[in-house]
């Protein structure tokens, strides 16, 4: 039970997000954004969660290369897989919102393209893994690709959007960083946003650890047979 505190926290934070996210008073500044701003509690945390999970995945890839154990490889794969799912949800929640606010689900915005690139890279990671028979080789070479891709992807995700005009915050000539314009957020919304970020991130970690346990059990039975 001692180790379960963060799972309890995760459930509580998400309950808070999903109730207060719809109840909290939001400032209505113009007739355009209205209540759809509440998507902030769902769309933006997906990216925070994805980046955290990919970062954990790359750390385990580095560990794999240093220690040459199968566990680090398993962790790297499952964190990448869960991160990919959160990335897909980030794109979906963004596209639904953009369909109403920007007039079309995909408008070729710099951040949208960046998100698509990130997803393509991690799809490629799984294709690469699929092309090996030997599991040792698979683990080492996919770890190398994971580190290489991560190191090339994230500087560009954080630098390039600042250089072009963007519909998202943080583009050329607009306030904030590429994730969000933090100083622009109403205090009441801030009280829901940050718990939402932590809640969703904890959920991502939880899903990944569950999958890791499942894979361990599968491996255990495979060796018994």
């Amino acid at each position: 039970m001692n180790k379960a505190w963060w799972k309890v926290l995760c459930v509580l934070l998400l309950l808070y997000t999903c109730s207060m996210g719809f109840l909290v008073k939001i400032p209505v500044l113009d007739g355009r954004l209205q209540q759809s701003i509440r998507n902030l509690y769902f769309h933006v945390p997906m990216w925070f969660c994805m980046q955290t999970l990919f970062m954990v995945s790359v750390i385990y890839s580095i560990l794999r290369l240093r220690k040459q154990d199968w566990k680090s490889d398993l962790y790297a794969v499952e964190f990448a897989r869960t991160g990919l799912i959160f990335g897909l949800m980030g794109i979906t929640t963004g596209a639904i919102w953009a369909n109403y606010q920007w007039g079309e689900p995909w408008s070729g915005d710099a951040k949208q393209n960046g998100a698509a690139i990130a997803l393509l890279i991690y799809f490629a990671y799984f294709i690469l893994r699929g092309s090996f028979q030997d599991s040792e080789k698979k683990a080492n070479i996919s770890a190398v690709y994971n580190i290489f891709a991560f190191a090339m992807l994230f500087p560009t995700l954080w630098i390039l959007p600042r250089m072009t005009e963007s519909l998202h915050p943080g583009g050329q000539g607009s306030e904030g960083n590429p994730a969000l314009n933090g100083s622009d957020l109403a205090p009441s919304m801030r009280m829901v946003f940050w718990p939402a970020v932590f809640g969703w991130t904890l959920l991502g970690v939880w899903i990944a650890t569950l999958r890791i346990r499942l894979q361990k059990i599968k491996l255990h039975y495979a060796t018994l047979q």
Binding site: I117, I121, A124, L128, S131, F148
Partner: peptide, 20 residues
């Protein structure tokens, strides 16, 4: 190392090279 030259290179490389 994966013995699937050109196709795999394109899959891995295109998303990485887009920003550049």
């Amino acid at each position: 190392k994966a013995q699937q030259q050109a196709a795999l290179m394109a899959i891995m490389g295109f998303p990485l090279i887009i920003p550049q």
